[in-house]
Design a binder for these strands. Structure first.
Length: 578
DNA sequence: GCCGTTTTCGGCCCGACTGTTTTCAGTCG
């Protein structure tokens, strides 16, 4: 997939063109940025589009005309774009690195290059140490020390943090803000609200009569390491967890418009504003206005969408991936909700690498509102997790039977295992043992570096055994950890369809596997998805909301999710009698 | 460089904050 490479190059061309500062280049910059956005958020490999339909097919993509389509073709065919190469000769600067620094854009980068020869963060650091920045036009003592601080923050907070780390902090901060009595309302916005798997910062939106006191309270909170930007309506701080947090305080009459604006995404908002313009309106964070500046709507987010002729778009869908068109046609899917989930098909106990007994897990599942769950311990090949053999499973299942009797329907425990799919595609237990289970889950835990075809065949063979009901964490990726193995998900989905296997959406915060884009990609297949926690201790059942958020980002409806079914419906599906 | 339900020419999302400025450019989201 060349999408990211091309998007990066277009962004870099845009940065370099933005220096030229002529009347047309200003909009040429925007054209390159728009195109980079289109390509960067594309669901399928751009080279596939090109190879299937040539330049004409590329030109059908939004923001891509003949000129840019030819440049994309040039890159796919020759691995380089002439315009990019010649600009790079003119400005041999690492823009993508430098512009990641707070307070550093393309223009400053070029000024620093031309006057001091700064090309990247390393050479910038040296220039700062020698105090050579402060005397440049447009710079001063403050900008010099701020750049130094930006470098420090960049080094310490490289990369985005997990949703599972950001969301609990954000919620507790909002809780404290509301309890302070200074805030009338405080809500979560930004990528955290959209449930992106990682977030670059936390955005909080608040209403108050006393914005100054609010900002004072905010910068003084325990979670805050230091303020970065402080204004009367907008303040940015650096949090101790290693990410920044924005607070915007607005007037109550703008609450709806402000939510719409601050939830984002930026790409979604740009599209929505264009729709406003087409209708002769103007949309900003204060409201929707007509051409004479009279207010059309501002109090309620849903009303703003309505006034624009659109359905209310759930935050998780706001990524400019086609939801705008559907909202205009009133054809948005009715997304699955946390409260729809009745069971969990993937959990562990202390018999293998879990931390709690099956009884404790059952109690926690009840507390979390579930009516059934599958206990799915690891199998013998996974030594590191003390995987169980056939005899141990038989003994364990007797315990589960006894517990089920004792629980008397308060919750139903399904007997299962997270069975290793061995290198040759065989399942790591005897057929007799697997057939005694309600919920055999298959998973890959070894030999991650097989080539794509072999890995795909390995899993397809396991599915074709007819004994597997769920394929756990299908790509094996760990966010900020490892890439995941190379596997052809389309072929996996076909095999899953044919064998009545559900594909898992693993809710563990550093897995979220399948992820939103893969779910979207596979939505045309008639497979069910199973949103599981992979709980290794009782507290992990709370992770379910991350899996549901991911499913919603993948546009899944309740009907597409296996474990929204009741216990008896699920048992029928698992036994193949549905 | 893209794009069109008033347009194939003349527009292109919108506002806050900061530092270095005497009215604004650069950056950010």
């Amino acid at each position: 997939m060349r999408n990211k490479e091309i998007a990066d190059i277009f962004n870099e061309i845009a940065d370099m063109l933005s220096i030229e500062d002529t009347a047309t280049s200003k909009f040429e910059v925007r054209a390159y940025k728009n195109a980079a956005l289109t390509i960067g958020t594309l669901q399928e490999p751009i080279e596939d589009i090109y190879h299937a339909g040539g330049i004409e097919a590329l030109m059908k993509l939004p923001g891509i005309g003949r000129g840019l389509a030819e440049k994309i073709a040039e890159y796919i065919d020759h691995g380089r774009i002439d315009k990019h190469e010649s600009l790079k000769k003119k400005y041999p600067i690492n823009f993508s690195e430098l512009t990641q620094l707070e307070g550093m854009g393309a223009k400053r980068a070029v000024l620093l290059y031309k006057s001091l020869g700064v090309k990247d963060i390393a050479s910038l650091s040296k220039a700062i140490e020698a105090h050579r920045i402060r005397n440049l036009p447009g710079f001063g003592d403050k900008s010099e020390s701020q750049l130094q601080e930006s470098i420090r923050l960049y080094e310490s907070g490289k990369g985005r943090i997990l949703l599972g780390d950001a969301l609990p902090i954000a919620e507790s901060m909002i809780d404290k803000m509301l309890k302070s009595g200074l805030f009338k309302k405080a809500v979560l916005a930004g990528s955290t609200r959209r449930m992106r798997e990682t977030v670059g910062d936390i955005d909080i939106l608040a209403i108050s009569d006393k914005p100054e006191s609010c900002m004072g309270f905010f910068v003084g909170m325990d979670d805050v390491e230091k303020p970065i930007v402080k204004g009367p309506t907008k303040t940015t701080v650096w949090l101790k967890i290693g990410t920044s947090c924005d607070l915007r305080v607005i007037k109550p009459e703008s609450f709806g418009a402000a939510q719409q604006y601050f939830i984002g995404s930026k790409e979604h908002n740009i599209e929505v504003r264009k729709i406003a313009i087409k209708k002769g309106y103007k949309l900003n964070e204060y409201g929707l206005f007509d051409s004479k500046g009279r207010i059309i709507s501002s109090l309620d987010e849903a009303d703003i969408y309505k006034k624009l002729g659109m359905e209310y778009v759930p935050p998780e869908m706001r990524e400019a991936r086609g939801e705008i068109e559907l909202a205009l046609e009133h054809r948005l899917p009715n997304l699955v909700e946390l409260s729809d989930i009745k069971g969990d098909m993937h959990t562990h106990t202390l018999e293998t690498d879990g931390a709690n007994t099956i009884g404790e897990m059952a109690e926690a599942a009840i507390q979390n509102g579930l009516t059934y769950f599958a206990t799915t311990n690891h199998t013998k090949s996974l030594n590191i997790a003390h995987g169980m053999n056939d005899r141990q499973f038989a003994a364990f299942f007797k315990k589960v039977d006894a517990l089920n009797d004792k629980l008397d329907g308060k919750i139903k425990i399904l007997k299962g295992a997270e069975i290793d799919i061995l290198k040759n595609g065989a399942l790591d237990l005897e057929a007799k043992t697997i057939k005694s289970m309600d919920c055999p889950v298959g998973a890959v835990h070894s030999a991650f570096n097989m080539d794509r075809d072999s890995m795909t065949k390995r899993v397809v063979r396991a599915m074709d055994s007819g004994m597997m009901r769920i394929f756990a964490h299908p790509t094996g990726r760990v966010i900020n950890g490892r890439e995941g193995y190379d596997i052809d998900l389309e072929r996996i989905a076909e095999a899953a369809e044919r064998n009545n296997v559900a594909l898992e959406i693993n809710s563990f915060p550093d897995r979220l596997d399948l992820n939103d884009t893969n779910i979207l990609r596979l939505s045309e297949y008639k497979v069910l998805f199973s949103i599981d926690t992979d709980s290794h201790r009782t507290s992990h059942f709370k992770f379910l909301r991350y899996g549901v958020g991911t499913a919603r980002r993948g546009w899944l409806t309740k009907g597409r999710v296996l474990n929204t079914r009741t216990y008896s419906e699920v048992m029928k599906l698992l036994k193949g009698n549905a």
